[in-house]
């Protein structure tokens, strides 16, 4: 630990503007949500004027086991979200991002520039534009079906028959760039001598990846996974593509919260969902911190 340049008082002074923002726009809404989650506060109807304290009622309703897994209920939504996160964040974004980073490791040239530029373009384009692009892409008359027909495959009604797969592909496409960039930076920091030694002893590419690159990348993978898991868990953009349908089959938790809170205005219940989501995210983040800490201890 280096000696501090700033006294604690001064460093707090530098932090003040950030703390004001955090207090106003993160902490205040959070406590407001937390407190609201124990009431039957609605924005319309009688419960708007006289909200009552209902204790844990909202939470109990959400975990009502009888209808829990029915379409449009929370259990169903959480199950979809789990598939969505595993499919699009863990396998899709992290897997593909790692794949691209490894494939282009120590390579330069036009193809690398092209792939990187395309992936980054998908990442930085505005929400409404990418949603529309994919809406057109997956339409029964869209580009994807045109390509399938060109190679003799049967066209599909993607958004209707495979809504969850559609948003998983969409979110993979949308967010891979972050993992790709992160892993590229990480790989660039690995001394070339490590890999050369492996070449000398005649390691196979898979062995090289498994025994040399992967252990060195472990910490980065953990960082990457937790960030994209949190982002994917809370992303609302698929709403612009499917609206959560058809028939609730892409009704991930962010869309579910939106429906309860801003369509039916059952604000107490929506707040309870937000608190539950927060707790789930907290657990996921703790697992990450645990892995990350144990790695640091290993290295030390």
């Amino acid at each position: 630990m280096q000696k501090a340049v700033l006294s604690r008082k001064l460093s707090l002074l530098f932090l003040t503007p950030a703390l004001v923002f955090v207090a106003l726009f993160l902490v205040y809404p959070f406590f407001s949500i937390f407190q609201m989650s124990f009431t039957n506060r609605a924005l319309v109807g009688a419960n708007a004027l006289n909200p009552q304290n209902v204790g844990l009622q909202n939470y109990m309703d959400l975990f009502d086991t009888q209808d829990w897994m029915r379409r449009g209920e929370m259990g169903h939504s959480l199950w979809l979200t789990a598939q969505f996160v595993i499919g699009s964040a863990l396998i899709g974004q992290a897997g593909l991002g790692l794949g691209i980073a490894v494939a282009f490791h120590n390579r330069k040239g036009l193809l690398r520039e092209l792939v990187f530029t395309l992936a980054i373009a998908a990442w930085i384009m505005p929400d409404v534009v990418v949603a529309f692009a994919w809406f057109a892409y997956l339409d029964p008359d869209g580009t994807l079906n045109q390509m399938l027909q060109a190679v003799g495959l049967r066209p599909q009604d993607w958004l209707f028959d495979y809504p969850l797969l559609s948003i998983i592909l969409f979110n993979t496409w949308r967010g891979t760039a972050f993992s790709m960039l992160l892993f590229s930076s990480a790989l660039a920091s690995i001394p070339p001598s490590y890999v050369e030694t492996a070449d000398v002893i005649g390691a196979r590419p898979w062995q090289k990846f498994r025994d040399i690159l992967l252990p060195l990348l472990r910490g980065y993978i953990a960082t990457d996974l937790i960030l994209i898991t949190l982002w994917t868990f809370n992303t609302f953009t698929p709403f612009l593509l499917t609206g959560g349908g058809p028939s609730y089959r892409s009704n991930i938790i962010a869309i579910y919260t939106y429906e309860v809170g801003l369509r039916f205005f059952q604000f107490g219940k929506a707040s309870a969902i937000a608190v539950i989501v927060m707790l789930i995210n907290l657990v996921l983040a703790s697992i990450y911190l645990f892995i990350s800490r144990s790695r640091q201890r290993q290295i030390a």
Partner: peptide, 21 residues
């Protein structure tokens, strides 16, 4: 903790308190 906050709190549920604020 802040990142955790931001990913959840910038979600749809916080739109109402943020609107009021």
């Amino acid at each position: 903790v802040l990142i955790l906050f931001s990913s959840v709190v910038t979600g749809t549920a916080s739109m109402v308190p943020i609107f009021k604020l």
